[in-house]
């Protein structure tokens, strides 16, 4: 399939899925793995990783939150000197934040290292934690994606939605104010992306589950702007953004009396499809909203029959 004959040695990465990749974000995990395979990159899942604790641990016990990530960083170091690819933005930020705070604050370092030692866990090392957007943009590159694409995009215009924690506060997946990497990667496979000023506005994260009306409202604002900018679908890079934008459209339809049926895709699904990946292995059957459009855009006539 993928012809990685570009002369360079096969790059290998460690992969940190995180809890959502087994549940609501399963399509993200599937498409990241498929895309990496098509690009001839090796990914190996980090053995026995634990949950990052997300915002909940930070809200209860900061040190415990750092300890959770410290164990993961220790496992990553033991697994060899490879970059750790982390698609979930909550996991990504928790790992990065732990590294930064341990470096900046001697008191935190002491506590975290002490806790690992107490439990017989080897110390953490200098592991490079990376978001797939950064890996695809910096290691693979727009040109290689363009060269390897076997299908040309025939779907509608897309709005690229970057969300929050992969860009803030550390601005490593892309720059914090006007990120463009996802736009550039998708343009390389023929997608027209619209100018989208809300690309880094927060989706509210878990607010849709806790203070529901506020959470839904934030997502309504984002989708409204998507429509206003003339985009027919959204490309995301976070499982929580994807879920929030995808799952509550029927509710918005009832409340705002507006018809939203917008496919919410992962950018890795689109790239994977362009590189020849098939519908199911990219998790494209897992969308809730805009299923008709997804069917039209990503399938050959034969596959449509099996899908509908």
């Amino acid at each position: 399939m993928a012809n990685s004959t570009s002369g360079q040695e096969k790059k290998s990465y460690l992969y940190f899925p995180g809890c959502t990749m087994q549940a609501t974000g399963i399509a993200y995990g599937e498409s990241v793995r498929t895309l990496f395979r098509l690009l001839g990159l090796q990914v190996e899942e980090l053995e026995d990783w634990n949950c990052c604790g997300a915002t909940s641990y930070m809200s209860i016990d900061e040190r415990a939150a750092f300890v959770l990530s410290a164990r993961n960083l220790s496992l990553a170091r033991q697994a060899g000197p490879r970059d750790l690819v982390v698609p979930c933005t909550a996991c990504f930020l928790m790992l990065r934040k732990t590294q930064e705070y341990v470096r900046q604050y001697p008191s935190i370092r002491q506590e975290v290292e002490g806790a690992l030692k107490q439990a017989g866990i080897p110390p953490m090392g200098p592991v490079r934690v990376r978001h797939p957007l950064d890996v695809l943009y910096s290691d693979v590159g727009v040109e290689q994606i363009r060269a390897k694409a076997t299908r040309r995009w025939h779907g509608g215009r897309l709005a690229c939605y970057y969300g929050c924690q992969a860009l803030r506060p550390y601005a490593e997946a892309d720059q914090a104010y006007n990120p463009m990497r996802m736009d550039e990667l998708l343009q390389a496979v023929g997608v027209t992306t619209v100018d989208f000023p809300l690309k880094t506005k927060c989706c509210g994260g878990s607010l849709t589950g806790t203070i529901h009306p506020v959470g839904v409202r934030l997502n309504y604002i984002i989708l409204k702007e998507v429509a206003r900018r003339g985009a027919q679908a959204v490309a995301t890079m976070c499982s929580l953004c994807q879920f929030n934008l995808d799952a509550y459209q029927s509710e918005m339809r009832e409340e705002a009396h507006e018809v939203f049926d917008v496919p919410i895709l992962y950018f890795t699904q689109i790239l994977g499809w362009a590189l020849g990946g098939d519908f199911r292995s990219l998790g494209l059957h897992r969308g809730i909203a805009g299923r008709n459009l997804i069917g039209q855009w990503f399938t050959t006539p034969k596959e449509v029959e099996a899908y509908v």
């Binding site: 915002t55 930070m58 929050c164 924690q165 803030r168 506060p169 601005a171 914090a176 104010y177 880094t200 506005k201 927060c202 509210g204 994260g205 878990s206 607010l207 806790t210 203070i211 506020v214």
Partner: peptide
């Protein structure tokens, strides 16, 4: 409680 930890303020 409303703060969604989005770091927009911070940057």
């Amino acid at each position: 409680w409303l703060c969604a930890s989005c770091y927009a303020c911070r940057v």
